[in-house]
Design a protein around this nucleic acid. Structure first.
Length: 265
DNA sequence: GTGATAACCTGCTCGC
DNA sequence: TGCGAGCAGGTTATCA
């Protein structure tokens, strides 16, 4: 499930390869989620950016190709792939092929005027990037205070901070010793959680992302961060801090793992 | 406006 | 061995 570190890893690999290249002869799987790919035709790529979990390919005609990888989306650059899971494809002017592959079809593609994300609500309302100076404990405290939803659900909603998914939300909450089901934070908890979010996502980027099943880099390699997880997917195992058995429950339709001792309510 | 929930989608795992 | 049920989860739409 590509979150900020996985998308950023893909962005860093694509940027030097795609900027200046021309997208040609687009093909798209017959679904409204993917047919916008056809709008990016015979146009040069001018930048490769990321916002939250979205990949933004700037096009020379003042538009952006917005890519969301969904649950199982991957981007491949090189030889053409055709295995039944390809959802979009472009020929490049250097004879390579840019392929968007997505088994579960939770991903989506859009072409919008550069910077105009009104048709993509989550992107339009996304909170600050975790590595921006404006994101800190004070911001997180104020953002969480505006809602009565569980704190983990607020992290996943992308408004308090952009880029977190289920894996890194569990990890950040574990690092900050915050129970996922609380609905309010003290200022001290907010400071700790903001710091933990930056640490969890930073580690994820440095480790090239987390591969549990589907995620691959542009080169087809797996990430390494799955070897460094403390909470996500470790229910029934012992806490790395206190050796208590980690617990798991479904919280707002998301499997959530936490330490009942370190992350006491 | 906010919160809760269903739907989308397919491979994998588990139980029978 | 084969089948069916349940699960995984990011985003959007819908309803209360």
């Amino acid at each position: 499930m590509p979150e900020l570190p996985e998308v950023e890893t893909i962005r860093r690999a694509l940027e030097p390869e795609l900027v200046g290249r021309r997208l040609r002869h687009p093909w798209a799987f017959a679904s409204p989620k993917f047919t916008p790919a056809l709008l990016a035709d015979d146009v040069r790529v001018v930048h490769v950016r990321r916002r939250a979990k979205y990949l933004l390919l700037g096009l020379h005609d003042d538009h952006e190709l917005v890519v969301h990888l969904g649950m199982t989306g991957t981007v491949h650059l090189g030889e053409a792939i055709d295995d039944g899971y390809v959802r979009a494809r472009w020929a490049l002017d250097d004879d390579r092929t840019l392929t968007f592959r997505d088994v579960r079809r939770f991903g989506r593609l859009r072409v919008v005027p550069t910077g105009d994300y009104r048709t993509i609500p989550t992107l339009a309302t996304a909170g600050p990037e975790p590595f921006d100076p404006e994101f800190d404990g004070a911001h997180l405290y104020a953002a969480v205070k505006q809602s009565r939803r569980h704190v983990k659900t607020q992290l996943l909603a992308q408004r308090a901070v952009a880029g977190l998914g289920n894996i890194y939300a569990d990890e950040a909450l574990w690092l900050a010793r915050v129970n996922p089901a609380v609905r309010t934070l003290t200022r001290r908890q907010a400071d700790a959680l903001a710091e933990a979010i930056v640490e969890a996502l930073g580690d994820g980027v440095r480790n090239g992302g987390t591969t549990l099943r589907d995620y691959r880099t542009v080169d087809g390699e797996t990430g390494r961060n799955q070897h460094h997880l403390h909470a996500y997917g470790r229910a029934g195992q012992t806490c790395d801090r206190c050796s208590t058995e980690l617990q798991s429950r479904v919280l707002d339709a998301r499997t959530t793992t936490w330490c009942p001792t370190c992350q006491r309510r």
